[in-house]
């Protein structure tokens, strides 16, 4: 009897836990969706801000976020895939490889604001990029590097060993095997990893605070050396700067909705692709 009671109470508690978690996370999405929809319109997405940020749209911020995200991926993708290829295809089990592994893990845990400091000292100051898209992309690229490495590694490890053996048995060299057999097979996995990290980069704010972002530009950025508006930073700036808190909060709701929809859609797509892909291996 007592056994049964404690089981029921225990399971009840677990139910409460998952309920609380889903309630809080659900209510964030609910509030932002409901209030964001009020302000959302075609003009809001395609127009530049007007009248001291109280009217018009947020198009430059959307465009800025797209630039920064793409740039970061361009920086991180070749490096990340190359590193993953080395670790899974070439690496001898050695001290050096262990050090590389550890540094990837630790880089993944560095707080995002510290990346911002690094970007400020190195890219903005030392390399003289100034506060610019380029500096922001480099900073964000380093930030997502660990994620891209581990996603690519997972994808490469999932390629059956028999593929490699078959290719080598046909007389292909190591590099030919990697290029023509292993990489194509791992490509869907690598791509999902990349898509997931796009979601992360798009929402990052702290690393671009001092390296790329600005509250207001008159139009769209003209070169990779210009400052940009970005959605996440724009939300922060709308809430903390400016002189019309009420109107600005409404616009911030709109920005938050666009950002949230963007990030959630991207990561949902990646996760669905990944599940399909995993199933195809299992069969």
């Amino acid at each position: 009897m007592k056994k049964q009671l404690s089981q029921n109470m225990g399971f009840g508690f677990l139910f409460l836990c998952i309920g609380t978690a889903l309630f809080f996370l659900g209510s964030i999405i609910y509030f932002i969706a409901i209030r964001g929809f009020r302000i959302l319109s075609w003009d809001f997405i395609t127009q530049v801000p007007r009248e001291a940020m109280t009217a018009g749209g947020v198009a430059p911020a959307i465009v800025g976020t797209l630039y920064l995200t793409m740039g970061a991926i361009i920086v991180a993708l070749p490096l990340g895939v190359a590193c993953a290829i080395y670790l899974t295809e070439y690496s001898p089990k050695s001290f050096v490889v262990n050090i590389i592994r550890m540094s990837i893990n630790n880089l993944a845990g560095v707080p995002s604001v510290v990346f911002g400091l690094f970007g400020l000292a190195i890219f903005v100051k030392l390399f003289g990029f100034g506060v610019s898209i380029l500096a922001g992309c480099c900073t964000l690229g380093i930030l997502v590097l660990p994620q891209i490495i581990s996603a690519s590694q997972e994808a490469l490890l999932a390629v059956p060993q028999s593929y490699r053996e078959a290719s080598l048995a046909l007389g292909a060299t190591h590099w030919q095997t990697i290029r023509s057999t292993v990489l194509p097979a791992a490509l869907p996995g690598i791509l999902t990893g990349v898509i997931l990290s796009i979601g992360r980069v798009a929402g990052e704010t702290a690393p671009i605070l001092f390296t790329a972002a600005t509250f207001y530009t008159r139009g769209y950025p003209s070169s990779i050396f210009s400052e940009v508006m970005a959605l996440p930073y724009h939300i922060y700036a709308l809430m903390t700067e400016g002189t019309h808190p009420q109107e600005q909060t409404q616009i911030a709701y709109g920005c938050a909705l666009i950002l949230l929809a963007l990030v959630l859609a991207i990561s949902a797509a990646a996760i669905i692709i990944r599940q399909r892909h995993r199933k195809s291996y299992e069969q």
């Binding site: 704010t205 922060y236 959630l264």
Partner: peptide
């Protein structure tokens, strides 16, 4: 994956 700025 919800960005931290949204929580803030």
């Amino acid at each position: 994956g919800i960005p931290s700025i949204v929580y803030g």
